[in-house]
Every structure is written in C-alpha cells, then in structure tokens.
Design a protein around this nucleic acid. Structure first.
Length: 569
DNA sequence: GCCGTTTTCGGCCCGACTGTTTTCAGTCG
C-alpha cells in the first residue's frame, strides 16, 4: 500500500515547484496527490491493471512517476529537486507566515535550511535586510517559530470538538449574534483538525470581532479585519472568525466548511453555467441569485444537498449531480454499543454503571467485552473470572429494565493467529471480538493471515480495530484488504469502526472500501469509563465520511433483529 | 502537467489580510 507515500512525494514536488512560482504544474501535482491520498483502491493494484491514467488528474507523465515510485521506492525527479534546494520543508512551512516563496528567498540569500538556521538569522536581524521583509516580519517569525516547534500541527477531532462547542456557546450568548456555527474541517468531522473556523450572522460585525479577539479563550490576535479575524487560543490552536449578513450565510457556510478541493469543483460548475460562486453567493453579473441557505447554493448549481462529512471532493459532487448520494447513517441511529470495558479488566466503571449510562443514551443493548487471559497489562480475565463475570451480568440484567447486557469478550489474536480463550467458553458468549495487541511488525501476508484465521473461528463475530492504527502515534499495520474483505463476507464477520478518538479504525477511506467490497460494519466506542460512551458520535461521523448508510451498520438494528441476523446467539 | 457535449491548445477558483509596498506579493483557507 504505497498510496500515502506517492501522495506525500507529489505534495513535496508541488512545494518545490511553488517555490519557483510555477503555478499550474504545482496544481497538477497537488491534484494528483489528492486523488491518490483519498483513493479507495490500492495504487499498486490500479497500476498492475494498467488503469492509472483513468484516475482524475493523472496523465501520462505522472503515471510514469507513480510507476517509478512503486518499482524503485523513490523518484529521481524528486531527489534532484531536493538536492537543488535542500531545506526541511515541513518544518519551515509549519511556521505561520512562511510559504514556499519566502523559504526559497531565505535559503538563497541566507542559507536557511531548517528551524535552527531560521532562528539564528532572525536573531541576527539578517532577515529585515531582504527585499519585502521588515522588522515586523522578523518579529512575527520569531514568535511563530516557537509555536511551530511546540505544536506539530493537527489535533484529534475528539478533543477539539468539545472545545469548539464551548466557544460557540460563548459567542452565542451575545445579543447581537443571530447565529453562530462551527465550520471547516470540524464540521466535516475530519479525524484531525488544524484550526477552529467560526461563522457568525450579525448586523454588528465590529462588536462581534471585538468580543472574539478579547474573549477568555484568546491568547493573542494574529489578524483582525472588518470581516475576518484570526486569534491564537490559549489551548494552542488558531481560530478564525468570519462575519456575514443573513442573506449571504448559506454561501459563506459552504465556502467556510470546505473542503477547499470541493469548493474548487463547485466554482468550476458555476463557471460552466455562466455564474460565479464565492462566499457572498452565486452571482450573475454581480446579482446574487442564491446565497441565503446552503440548499439554495447547491440547487442552483444543479446539485442535491451534500452532507458536510462528504465534502472532500471524493466523488460526492458527481453523485450530487446525478442524485445518487448515499443516505448516510444518522447520529441517532445506534441502538447499542458492542465494545466496552469495565473494572473486570482495564476499565474504571462497573457493569451496572455502564449499562445505566447506555440506557440513558437511549440504547436497547450493550455488550461488556473485557480483555482476556494473555493481555495481563490490560487486566485480562482467566476462565474462572469470565464465568464469574457472566453471573454478574445475569444479575444486573435482572435488576435493570429496558436495557439488555450482552456477554462478550475482546480476545487477543496471537502472533500465530490463535486466540487466547478456549472455544467451549467462547461458544457461551453472545459477542466475541477478536483483535491484535502485539507483534505489529510482521509482514503483510502474516498480519493478514492472523486476522483471517481469527475470522475463521466460528465463535468470532467482530474484528475490533482492524488496522491497529493510533492517529499520530502508530501506523496501521500492513494488510491485504482485498483478502480481509473477502474473508469477512465468507465467514460472516463484522468489521469494527472503533470510535475511540485516537483510533477511528477503520478509517473513513477504509470504511468506504469495505462497503464497496460488501462488508458489514459495527460502530463501537471501546469505552473504558462511562463518559466515553459518547465517543459513538465520532464513530458515526467517521462512518458517514466513509459513505456508510444505516443498513451497513449492524448496531442500528433493534436487539432481536441483531441477534437473529448475525447469529450472536 | 492535465484536460476537453463550446477547445488536442489555451486555459486552469476566489477573496481577505498583512507588511512592505507607492500598486503589490505572499500567505492562508
């Protein structure tokens, strides 16, 4: 699976080209990178089928470069660009205000290659001597440099979402604010978030902007204009505020939600129709034809409404034009949660508390799925403990009404693909999840074999966190997804969408691939205390980003149907 | 470098803000 690597190289090439002021070739490489990054197929498979040039934005030249990367692991063209300008691009670009042009200037004139060089030259006041630079630029670089060192960019959606809602509530308290919405990648529910985008309807832009730039969450003001301002928050994130009147709200909301790539597609459609789309509306010769609501904007472009989670330019615009968008699983569609832990292993709440919490969320059922034997670190249960826990579940089931606790386990798949609990005991369970917790670095075939042999055990119902990734922490292990999806269907095994904020595993792209291959999914929180049951929202969001419908997710079924259809006796 | 029910050549999304500029380039989203 070299998709990410190929996309990464193309983005770096685009950086180098942008340095030299080459506009459209830069765009071609960025387009190609986006196509490959979000591709629901393995680029190596596409290549071996000889279909690279059928992908959008990929022509003969870029196809050749993809082949070179797949065959040799590197790309000569890129290596040459690196030699020509050997700078640490990613580090320098992370400094707010520095872009490719400035980085080039700093390298040519002062030999700046990395953050240390940049700091030295700034402190010596060499930067202000350069054309277009002044003392304010130097000061800004120095401030932002510290920030770039401390913050490696994006944060997890699960942590930013509550914070953004808190800010939203605070702004909403102002009398002059008619409406305040969170837009940007948070609204699209992207798994990581770079900043917080806030959109406000008001007749008094100045007052709202003043509040925003001085509210209790704000650390410092980065930019402040009449319609747009940016602040750095105390939590280290940047937040943008944009202020609009009511009749421009819809077009502003579309524009400010993004993604940038989808916006570009929408604008192209507008141009074809002789119109212009910007944040102020859909215009014909400066006359606003639409703009009050998002629906109006999509409709006048001949599109049905596109849910924010789909707005990534991954085919949703074409689907909207054809009226073939998926009917996404809803945020209130789950009837239960099939993975959570209690004090019996590494969780911190009791079975009863978890059950009551699930009931409060409106669920009909939950499965208690504590760790088993070999996972000592997670307080894994042995046979005797499992039997004792089953008795406790029977007891709590009798005490509580309108909620059913299913008996479950999360068993460990060892390095040979074997499970750590005897089959006779597994057969007594309602729900058995199997997952990998060690030996991540085996090769692709071996990892795939391990998971498939677990699927082949008739007692295993679900493969939990199937790729083992932890966002910004640990890569997914290398799997042959075609084999996994095929085996999942043959063995009637459900793949999990683990809703834990740093897992979201399967990811949005893998969810879409799994669904295209015909698999069924379950959205589980993997909660280790009762508060974490609310992570379900993140799992649903990720599933929506993977184009999942209600029928694709087994825990949208009521209890009886769930048990009947999926043999969870 | 890619792409085409107006084009195989000539286009390629759009606007706000900042700093250093006398009219604009660079960055950001």
């Amino acid at each position: 699976m070299k998709n990410q690597k190929v996309a990464w190289i193309f983005n770096r090439i685009a950086d180098y080209l942008e340095m030299d002021g080459i506009d459209f070739r830069t765009k071609a490489y960025r387009n190609a990178a986006h196509t490959i990054e979000t591709l629901s197929l393995d680029i190596e498979d596409v290549r071996s089928e000889g279909r690279l040039q059928e992908l959008p934005g990929i022509g003969s030249k870029i196809a050749q470069k993809i082949e070179e990367i797949i065959d040799t692991g590197s790309l000569e063209y890129y290596e040459n660009l690196k030699k020509e300008t050997p700078v640490d691009f990613e580090a320098l670009l992370a400094v707010e205000g520095l872009g490719p042009k400035t980085i080039k200037l700093l390298y040519k004139e002062l030999g700046v290659k990395n953050l240390d060089d940049l700091e030295r030259e700034t402190k010596r006041h060499h930067i202000r001597r350069l054309r277009g630079m002044g003392d304010k630029t130097e000061k800004k670089i120095l401030e932002n440099l510290e920030f770039a060192r401390k913050n490696t960019g994006r944060r997890l959606l699960g942590y930013v979402l509550p914070q953004s809602r808190e800010i939203q509530e605070e702004i909403n308290k102002l009398d002059i604010v008619e409406r305040v919405e969170i837009a940007g990648s948070i609204r699209r529910r992207k798994e990581t978030v770079g900043d917080i985008d806030i959109l406000v309807i008001t007749q008094n832009p100045d007052e709202v902007t003043d509040f925003f730039t001085s509210m209790k969450f704000t650390e410092e003001v980065i930019a402040k204009g009449s319609s747009k301002s940016t602040v750095r928050l105390k939590n280290g994130l940047d937040a943008d505020l944009r202020v609009f009147p009511e009749d421009e709200f819809g077009s502003a909301f579309v524009y400010f939600t993004g993604s940038k790539e989808m916006n570009i597609e929408l604008r192209k459609i507008a141009i074809k129709k002789g119109l212009k789309l910007n944040e102020y509306g859909v215009l014909r010769d400066d006359e606003q034809l639409a703009g009050k609501t998002e629906e109006d904007v999509f409709n006048i472009l001949g599109l049905s409404y596109i849910e924010p989670e789909l707005r990534e330019n991954r085919g949703e615009v074409d689907a909207a034009a054809l009226g073939k968008l998926p009917d996404l699983v809803g945020y209130h569609d789950l009837k239960g949660d099939l993975q959570m832990h209690t004090k019996w292993s590494d969780g911190s709440s009791t079975i009863k508390i978890m059950a009551e919490s699930a009931k409060n969320l409106g669920y009909q059922y939950l499965a208690i799925t504590d760790h088993t034997g070999t996972l000592r670190i997670a307080g894994g249960m042995g046979d005797e403990q499992i039997k004792m826990q089953m008795k406790e579940i029977d007891q709590v089931n009798q005490e509580l009404e309108d909620i059913t606790i299913l008996k479950g386990l999360e068993v460990n798949i060892d390095s040979d693909g074997l499970l750590d609990i005897k089959n006779e005991l597994l057969a007594d369970m309602d729900v058995v999840l199997a997952s990998i917790h060690s030996g991540f670095r085996q090769d692709r075939e071996k990892m795939t074999d391990r998971i498939i042999s677990a699927m082949e055990n008739e007692n295993v119902d679900i493969i939990a966190h199937p790729t083992g990734r932890k966002i910004q922490e640990r890569r997914a292990y290398d799997l042959d997804f075609n084999r996994i999806y095929e085996a999942a269907q043959e063995t009637n095994t459900i793949l999990e969408v683990n809703a834990h904020p740093n897992r979201l595993d399967l990811s949005d792209i893998n969810i879409r691939r799994a669904l295209e291959a015909g698999c069924k999914l379950v959205i589980n929180t993997d909660a280790h205390k009762r508060e974490e049951l609310s992570f379900a929202e993140l799992g649903i969001a990720t599933s929506r980003r993977g184009w999942a419908e209600k029928k694709d997710i087994i825990n949208t079924l009521p209890l009886k149907k769930l048990l009947k259809n999926f043999n969870l006796n």
